[in-house]
C-alpha cells in the first residue's frame, strides 16, 4: 500500500498530544469528521509511528483507519463516547490483524525506473527502537498501549479484545525480548 498522506515538514510546528480533557471536549464539540481529523491527525500520526515503527506505515495505518471510521462516523459518534479512543483501538487492532500481512507486499502497476530510496529514520541509531520494531505486532501493540497510552492491563485487554492473561504474557515476552536485544546491542558495542 502506498501512503497517500503527503508528508511535508512543517517548520517549527509542535504537533501531537491530545489530553483527556481535549478528548472530552472533542466528543462534545466536534461533530464534523473533518474537524476531528484536522485536530487529531498529528497525534494519531505520532501514535501510528510508535505502533507501526516507521513514518510511511504510520501514515498508511492512520489513513486507512480514519477512512473506515469516517465512513461510519455517525454510528461511531453515537456508539462510542470517545471517538479518539475508538480510533486508537482500531489502529492497534488494524496493525495487528492486517498490517503485518500486507505491508511486505507493495503492488505497483509499473516497475519504477529508479529504485526506491528509503528515507532515513531518525530512530535508526536507537537500539531500543530497533528492538521494538522487531517485535511481533501484538507484542508491540501491548507495549505501545502500556507505555505510550499508559493503559492498564485490563484496558489493554479490552482494547485488543484479548484476555488479561494474554496481555500479561505478551508483555512479559516482549520485555524479555527487548532486554535480550538491548543486552546484545550493548555487548556488541563493547
Amino acid at each position: 500500500m502506498v501512503a497517500a498522506i503527503p508528508v511535508v515538514r512543517v517548520a517549527g510546528a509542535r504537533l501531537g498530544w491530545c489530553t483527556v480533557s481535549d478528548r472530552l471536549a472533542l466528543g462534545e464539540h466536534t461533530e464534523d469528521f473533518g474537524e476531528f481529523v484536522r485536530v487529531n491527525l498529528p497525534g494519531l500520526l505520532r501514535y501510528g509511528h510508535a505502533l507501526a515503527g516507521n513514518p510511511h506505515d504510520a501514515a498508511d495505518l492512520v489513513q486507512t483507519v480514519l477512512e473506515k471510521v469516517g465512513s461510519r462516523w455517525t454510528h461511531v459518534m453515537h456508539k462510542t463516547g470517545d471517538p479518539l479512543a475508538y480510533v486508537r483501538r482500531s489502529m492497534a487492532n488494524a496493525h495487528i490483524s492486517h498490517w503485518r500481512r500486507t505491508r511486505k507486499e507493495n503492488l505497483v502497476a509499473e516497475i519504477p525506473d529508479q529504485p526506491r530510496v528509503e528515507p532515513v529514520d531518525s530512530f535508526d541509531n536507537e537500539p531500543l527502537w530497533q528492538a521494538l520494531r522487531a517485535l511481533p505486532p501484538r507484542q508491540r501493540a501491548v507495549i505501545v498501549l502500556r507505555y505510550y497510552e499508559e493503559l492498564s492491563e485490563a484496558e489493554i485487554a479490552e482494547s485488543l479484545g484479548v484476555s488479561r492473561g494474554t496481555v500479561k504474557s505478551q508483555a512479559s515476552k516482549a520485555m524479555d525480548t527487548l532486554r535480550t536485544r538491548l543486552d546484545q546491542a550493548a555487548g556488541g558495542d563493547r
Binding site: 498522506i5 503527503p6 510546528a13 504537533l15 505520532r46 509511528h49 489513513q63 530512530f123 505501545v144
Partner: peptide
C-alpha cells in the same frame, strides 16, 4: 522513547481533505 520529539510526524497539506474524501468514497 515514546515521549521523544522525533516520534512526531509532520502533517502534509491536504492530508485531512484526502482522508475525508476517502471516507466519503
Amino acid at each position: 522513547l515514546f515521549t521523544d520529539e522525533r516520534l512526531t510526524l509532520p502533517v502534509g497539506e491536504g492530508a485531512e481533505q484526502a482522508i475525508v474524501a476517502g471516507a466519503a468514497r
